[in-house]
Write a protein that binds this DNA or RNA. Structure first.
Lengths: 328, 328
DNA sequence: TTGAAAGCGCTAACAG
DNA sequence: CTGTTAGCGCTTTCAA
């Protein structure tokens, strides 16, 4: 196809070893020879074949990423942050989408390994011991983001439990007497890894239970709209919906507005994640900032450290914070 | 590192050629030998090194994609569609982000070529003859999406000119007398490829000019919010803002709501693209459906056809349509 | 039906 | 300073 180092060697009348020294700034080469080689390389438009280089080096300088879906705002922001950080460190990023299909996830990871990426960043949909063993058996390091798999596997995320607790306390401080935790992903508990939502639930429940005089309800299925309507029309108790994800909060808001409810006068809504879609929504949603950019940066840093054989903290928590809107 | 075909050959007491025949379903091998080889391969957890295979085959079965930014809804949807289609055809997708930096774009394309992707899907920020020559000089095919570069380069997109004209006609049919075309990207005309916006502008202008009794204005800079305010407070002429992108329309809507205007009673707004953020916005934005999923699918199909040496239509237009909302 | 040898394009090790 | 040789893991070709 293109020009190879062999061609350059022939044209310059030197060996391929010398060409390599010139092209890769290696010592033990006469300046004039080097210059001559670089010149002809440039003239011919030589470009090294990274595939061949990787084969001999045993490193591709690329990272694999496996996420659910790029249409999800959270992942979009995460990927952007990963790309930028990886680029800075000289790594290429290979993004793949598993669409919440556990088998697909395994396939993708295997494909990435076969393509010899140096490490993988994973937002897993799989869980359990088999999957853990699978990951640990891989010949390259894996960095898990969001849904923890097992203590041994390098993980980065926020303290979901505490974040949910903080959120609830904030809601309670506004005088709400009935708090409904809207968490449809709980319905997929059996077949998916929903670690983060489970932790949020636990944080919600533990905080709710130690508070007097409040009613707390959990909605754990995907036909939540009908249930929301039921609760909101039941009586005059001051009610708030705490949604385990901004998307659910936006759906809830849309629904409540649709049936003529004023927010927050009639009913409160709180979200989780602070996705950037919120920018165009009124009233502004009160939510929890999930520092996704920081997570992306740290995920790449940790992963490259692992690749280089360094030790890292196997469970890194980054700080969340409450974003005050006008919906609670 | 891992198990290689050599190891298997040694263990099974055969040559590497035979192992290859077994592993890749090639003929001229005794069934028993084949079975024995496959069995040990499985036991040892053999996985072929795709790098090595690509090196000898001269094909990587992967596609490069270069877009502005994955946080942009339009690209997010496009990428999803590309990933899914490519996967179906057995191709891997390498997504990279250029962040509207022309030099970065060139670098990324070169990197992808060096990594020997078989073809590239490109939403270009560069333009002009030099860039065209650069693309045509690449050793692999390129499929351009959105911003056309030159007639010779394979392109796919909608008929932006006609879409803008259709939109304006629809707006006029509602009795608006002053139409303001909001197109901030025009400000970057010199340094970026904004082909699609220029075509939209042309479609807008040509349609506006052949209509009597209406006033038409173009806003072609990024400090458009202040100008929007000015126009809307000027007099009582029935005014509509036609925004060359839903994001601008959402910003405009936010701004107008912020100063107490009712939409569409006081002022009309129309967007372009039908990004999925619109789902949560009230009133629903009237806009133009840019069939991004279809574009993704066709882009991959065309590119793989080019890779396989087939002929394709070098300028493929897909159909847009007007999405009726409640903002006009 | 199988083996042996060559080669993809590059880097690394050792000799000169 | 430079050349030679070997080899990364795979596929392909030709010969047996």
């Amino acid at each position: 196809m293109g020009i190879t180092s062999k061609d350059i060697a022939k044209i310059c009348g030197v060996s391929r070893g010398t060409v390599d020294r010139a092209l890769n700034n290696k010592p033990r080469i006469k300046p004039e020879t080097k210059e001559r080689i670089l010149k002809t390389a440039k003239e011919l438009g030589y470009r090294p074949d990274l595939l061949a280089r990787s084969l001999v080096k045993g490193k591709t300088m690329s990272l694999g990423v496996v996420v659910f879906d790029v249409r999800n705002r959270y992942f979009a922001q995460l990927l952007n942050s990963i790309e930028i950080t990886a680029k800075k460190k000289g790594y290429f990023v290979n993004i793949t989408l598993q669409e919440k299909d556990p088998e697909m996830e395994i396939k993708l990871i295997n494909s990435l390994v076969d393509r010899r990426v140096d490490g993988i960043i994973l937002c897993p949909v799989n869980k359990g011991e088999t999957f853990q063993k699978f990951l640990q058996g891989l010949p390259i390091p894996v960095m898990v983001v969001g849904n923890q798999i097992a203590p041994g596997i390098p993980f980065i995320g926020i303290d979901e439990y505490k974040a949910a607790g903080d959120a609830l306390e904030m809601i309670l401080s506004k005088g709400y007497k009935r708090i409904i935790f809207v968490c449809p992903p709980l319905a997929d508990k059996e077949k998916e890894n929903i670690y983060s939502h489970e932790k949020r639930l636990a944080g919600f429940l533990d905080t709710a239970r130690k508070t007097n005089d409040i009613e707390h309800i959990v909605i754990d299925h995907w036909h939540y709209p009908s249930e929301i309507k039921k609760w909101v029309n039941k009586d005059n108790k001051k009610t708030a919906f705490f949604c385990s994800g901004d998307t659910f909060a936006l759906e809830t808001m849309k629904l409540l507005k649709g049936i003529g409810k004023k927010i927050p006068a009639d009913v409160g809504i709180m979200g989780f994640d602070y996705i950037d879609t919120l920018k165009y929504v009124t009233p502004a949603l009160t939510t929890i900032y999930n520092p996704v950019e920081e997570i992306g940066v740290k995920a790449v840093e940790n992963l490259t450290n692992l690749i280089e054989g360094k030790q890292i903290n196997r469970r890194l928590l980054v700080k969340h914070k409450i974003v005050a809107g006008a919906s609670i």
